[in-house]
């Protein structure tokens, strides 16, 4: 039966489509009953958003995006997160291995080859430099305009991937103050968007004049020492719509994403959990309190 074979192939479609469909179902009480009404409103908002973007593009002085995602990630046969190690840092493949078009002039020097397969022997290789769970044999490049401690590029089988540091291989967390400086924040941020926890529904955008202050205050995030109860509290906040995914839209067309749970004073950058500075909460909690998001699919 053709449909059975089709169904087998359909099973392994991109995770984001599964999450999108699952999430929308969970949201039916709050959103979908009023689909038509909200659809009309959304259409108006889309027109407004497109107009705003067009206006911003016209008024912008920076160059157009130079790095463009050209294909989503394929399914991971091992189910393992796609990451690699370089110079004592762990890097995650952006978009879990999405393919990017990176202009040749943006690529810097060759830093090495991904020689060690973490999937085959996680215990031996998970902390080793140039070990990877993806794109084995790929060439690691620095990126012009970025510190190698923030982002790197990998060329593999003629396609380019972006990798972003998330922690140190010895388990040490990123220091947000210096990390933001390495990343060039806030100078290379052209917009800040606030999404629901799943990162699917856009809830709000930060006024552009707030970007600098928002980023400066976030720099004060310090590694949090969390107990089991704190993790459970974080899990509850994520399910109850109190966790938000934030996107820094960068000048080169890419995004930097992280999570905020203002009600718990928690921020999450890379693989770390951090305590938000009081000053940040005093200044921005109000913005988040006014935002409601659909229930998460896991609830």
């Amino acid at each position: 039966m053709k449909a059975e074979k089709f169904s087998d192939a359909l099973e392994n479609i991109d995770d984001r489509y599964i999450l999108e469909a699952a999430g929308q179902k969970a949201a039916k009480k709050s959103v979908l009953r009023h689909w038509k009404t909200w659809g009309a409103l959304a259409a108006c908002l889309c027109v407004a958003a497109v107009s705003l973007l067009a206006f911003r593009q016209l008024g912008a002085t920076q160059s157009p995006p130079s790095i463009v995602q050209t294909a989503p990630a394929s399914d991971s046969p091992s189910g393992m997160r796609r990451f690699m190690n370089y110079n004592g840092m762990r890097y995650e493949f952006l978009g879990d291995g999405a393919i990017y078009e990176i202009p040749r002039e943006e690529l810097g020097e060759v830093l090495g080859t991904l020689d060690y397969d973490i999937v085959s022997d996680p215990e031996t290789y998970s902390g080793k430099d140039l070990a990877s769970s993806f794109a084995l044999g790929g060439t690691v490049y620095s990126l012009n305009g970025y510190s190698p401690e923030f982002r790197l590029a990998v060329e593999w089988d003629g396609s380019y991937y972006l990798c972003e540091s998330v922690a140190y291989t010895d388990g040490q967390l990123l220091q947000i103050d210096s990390y933001f400086s390495l990343a060039g924040f806030p100078e290379n941020i052209q917009g800040v968007s606030i999404y629901d926890h799943a990162g699917i529904n856009l809830l709000d955008r930060l006024p552009n004049e707030e970007i600098e202050n928002f980023t400066e205050l976030l720099k004060g995030s310090l590694p949090a020492e969390l107990e089991n109860e704190d993790y459970q509290e974080i899990g509850r906040a994520q399910q109850e719509g109190r966790s938000f995914q934030i996107s820094f839209e960068l000048m080169d067309g890419t995004e930097y994403r992280f999570y905020l749970i203002p009600s718990l004073r928690i921020s999450m950058f890379g693989d770390g959990r951090y305590s938000l500075p009081q000053e940040f909460c005093d200044s921005y909690t109000d913005i988040f309190e006014g935002l409601t998001q659909p229930e998460q699919p896991m609830s």
Binding site: D15, A22, S78, G79, M80, R81, V119, P297
Partner: peptide, 9 residues
């Protein structure tokens, strides 16, 4: 050894 992400999907 797998580290699934996202776990739900």
């Amino acid at each position: 050894p797998a580290i699934p992400s996202p776990l739900f999907a």
